[in-house]
């Protein structure tokens, strides 16, 4: 089981999602990907996509306007 942190702070909407999609392809089922974001649109699109793709998703608000999206690949 590995865990990867993806720093997407300062990146606008589609970039965190595309990076997360690529990062998840390299991971095995059960691995965890933590995506750090500060773009409110990505906070919506990223978890939505990941849930639709069947992964477990949790969102943590670290600071006002800063989130960690925790994705467990299934």
């Amino acid at each position: 089981m590995q865990e990867r942190v993806l720093d997407c702070l300062g990146e606008p909407c589609p970039v965190p999602l595309v990076k997360a999609q690529r990062a998840l392809e390299d991971l095995e089922a059960g691995d965890i990907l933590i995506v750090q974001i500060d773009h409110s649109c990505a906070m919506k699109s990223l978890p939505e996509w990941a849930r639709d793709a069947g992964h477990n998703v949790e969102i943590e608000e670290i600071d006002n306007g800063e989130w960690e999206v925790v994705i467990e690949k299934s």
Binding site: E3, V5, I32, I34, E61, I62, D63, N64, V70
Partner: peptide, 10 residues
């Protein structure tokens, strides 16, 4: 998760 989330400043 293994790593701890960064401390909240919310």
């Amino acid at each position: 998760r293994h790593s701890h989330p960064r401390p909240r400043r919310h």
